[in-house]
Amino acid sequence: MLLGEVDFVESTGVMVVKSVLIFIGVFLIVPVLTVVERKLIGRFQARYGPNRVGPGGVMQPLADVGKLLGKQVFRPENAIAFLYAIAPGLVILSGILTLAIIPFGNVEDGVGLYGIDVSIGVLYFFAFSSFAFYGLLLAGWASGSKYSFLGAMRSAAQLISYEVSMGLALLGVVMMAGSLSMTSIVEAQGSIWYVVPQFVGFLIFMISGFAETNRSPFDLPEADAELVQGFQTEYGGMRFGSFLLAEYLEMFVVSGIAVTFFLGGWMGPGPPWLDPVWVVVKILSLIFVFIWVRATLPRVRYDQLMSLGWKVMLPLATLNVLVTAILVTVL
């Protein structure tokens, strides 16, 4: 098998149709997620959350987008125009590209229910999820503002700290499944979901996932209390909205990867047509965990973030990989 080889190729028409479908589906989920998150956080804090726009507040995303679109398009004087403008695009692009490899189901009637099935699945995921940080760094640097710059520096440091342990956490699964391809990894979980044998890896992946998506308690790059939204300080209107969209997209993608690697992907009781439903249900329950954690934990201090990443997560992930390697070889 060649590196970068695609296991299963369909006709171009099918590819286009399913890309558009997955794209639209996820983009429709994102606004729903924003309102669900606000409602849920409200409930976690013993209040209602948004309930004024539409019945029960369900039209809140429309109102939000309308507000963002109505904002003046503004750029600070000492910002670098071109980079300032493309940075949000890069972040969204990264989210969409990583979305492509999340399998929503197996090959059915000659159509794979995923964007593409690359045989280098994990590497593809890391390559393009790290791509988002170019966007963040560019945004922070091109804004020409000290808060943005500090936020960007923090996100860079955070990425380096957590990317490593995230990769090692997935390595255990890759060794057990003996493949980098997402579909083969899901198929290898037919007897038992990897969350059981790889529980440590799952925890490490989720904690790194919080850091990767800049979600609380690791939302230091945007720390609204001290950095006034960090790298997004100088962004307004729909450009700010794009960062928000990218954040939810990344949350969806990280949950999707966790579902694929640890929670058995499309595995679940019921007929095969239920497969995508199972994937979405699993992803949404992981997103619930994301929101739950956000409602619970306070933001960690910068040095705590660093020491957790390098002194706890990395050794733990390495140990996990070593033990898995030995067990896989021996058994």
Partner: peptide, 13 residues
Amino acid sequence: TFGRIIEGPVTIQ
């Protein structure tokens, strides 16, 4: 925090 979801909101509209 999960207990708060079960107890329900206490705010007055």
